[in-house]
Simulated scan of single mutants.
Amino acid sequence: MDTVQPVGDPLLLGQRLVAILETGLRTATYKLATLMALVEHCIENLPAREHDSLAVPIPELAHRVLDLYWRQVRPFDGRELRQSTQSRARILIAATTLRHASRGASSLDTARLRAPEAYRKVIDDVVLCLAQQPLHRLQKLPGSPTSDPFLYDDAFLHDQVSRRTLRSHGDAVVLNPGVAHALARLSGLLKPALEVMWVDDVRRMNKFLDEDVPDVAGHLFGRSRSGFAAVREPFKDAFGPHCFYCRTHLPANNPIDHVLPWSLVGIDGLANLVLACARCNGDKSGALPALNLIDRALDDDRAISLEQIATSLQWPTQRDRVAAAARGIYRGQPTGVPTWSGFRQRERLDISFPPAWLRP
């Protein structure tokens, strides 16, 4: 890997990726899921230096990919959505199997707590699927006999790669120098583009989804507000019935907000969830929050209460993951970018005196 030249312009890397994805007819949504998972991994594990390489454990990638499909395997208007033209869609079968084993857990992390042995078996199967399919095809133009390893060395990956071979390579792919920073910086452009491709593929693979069938994207990538109802009352008991942002008193069915927006990184852990009023929730939407809001969300005293709630609900806090994602997101932003600091309030980003969670 030392002979690989660092990535230059991140936009050129993004263009190469999109060219591969848009050339030819995809037979499954697995490439899109793998790339989306890679982007999120880079955000949460951003190397200290821009031109560093980054090892990506395939089991961690498998968890992220499985998490993307976790809600998608639910029936849509009473019907299962196809996401592969093959007769056996391994990753969707894995997600459905684990959902059953975990008694319909609302999230993958909850399923891991409820059914650890089933989770390990499913992840092992998804690891092999990723290695045998999307990971060694993600850098290859359709019809080309060889790949162009501009993201990572894939020479050891092929359709029949074994677990033994994967273990000999540390169960990981190593991103080339500069790729992690480039993917993290491109996240705001790549994620929406990948979602559009994903919806198009699902419509193509499911003939009943004509143009008159609404909100396919909402089913695939939307957030079910009812899924967060379980945290509302425990949060009010622990922190009081007040908006996290403006402190106004809350009604019975107030929103639950993601501090780091779902559009930037998909973290449903308790550390990324807060009580909000409808006014702040709507005004903030997918905006990047001000640094002091992340400070408050990661506060040590709040973390103690969240751990207690996590135990009673079997809902992980993911505090370390929130901190890592925030660090990757803010370090990739230009100085002076506007951030949301409250209802109709904005402040310019300045990380010249970074808080503890933002330091490398």
Rank of each mutant, 00 (worst) to 15 (best):
M1Y: 13
D2F: 03
T3K: 12
T3E: 08
Q5I: 08
P6Y: 09
V7P: 00
G8A: 14
D9G: 09
D9C: 11
P10C: 14
L11A: 15
L11W: 09
L13W: 01
Q15F: 01
Q15R: 15
E22G: 11
A28H: 08
T29R: 13
K31T: 07
A33F: 10
L35V: 15
M36L: 14
A37I: 05
E40S: 13
H41M: 13
P47E: 07
P47D: 08
D52G: 10
D52L: 08
V56K: 04
I58K: 10
P59G: 03
L61Y: 02
H63N: 12
R64I: 03
L68V: 07
Y69R: 14
R71V: 04
V73S: 01
E80Y: 14
R82M: 11
I91Q: 00
L98R: 05
H100I: 10
A101T: 05
R103Y: 03
G104N: 05
S106I: 15
T110G: 12
A111V: 07
R114G: 00
A115E: 06
A115V: 08
P116C: 15
V122Y: 00
V126R: 03
V127L: 01
C129P: 00
L130C: 05
P134V: 10
L135H: 02
G143Y: 07
S144T: 06
T146W: 08
D148Y: 08
D153F: 10
D153L: 03
R167H: 06
S168M: 07
V173C: 01
V174I: 13
V179G: 11
A180T: 05
H181W: 09
A182C: 02
L183F: 00
L183N: 01
A184T: 12
R185N: 10
L194N: 07
E195T: 09
V196R: 13
M197K: 13
V199E: 06
K207D: 07
V213M: 10
A217V: 06
G218R: 09
H219R: 08
H219I: 02
L220V: 03
S226I: 02
F228R: 08
A229I: 11
A230T: 12
R232F: 06
P234L: 04
A238K: 01
F239P: 01
G240D: 08
F244K: 11
Y245A: 04
T248W: 11
H249A: 14
H249T: 15
H249P: 02
H249D: 15
N253P: 00
V259P: 04
L260Y: 10
L260E: 06
P261M: 06
G266H: 07
I267L: 13
G269Y: 05
L270E: 13
V274G: 00
L275V: 01
A278W: 12
N281K: 01
G286C: 10
A290G: 09
L291Y: 10
R296A: 13
D299M: 00
I309M: 06
A310K: 01
A310G: 11
S312M: 04
L313V: 12
L313H: 11
R319P: 10
R321W: 11
A325N: 05
A326V: 04
R327G: 03
R327H: 08
I329W: 09
Q333T: 09
P334A: 12
G336R: 11
W340Q: 03
G342Q: 09
R346K: 13
E347V: 13
F353E: 14
P354S: 06
R359G: 00
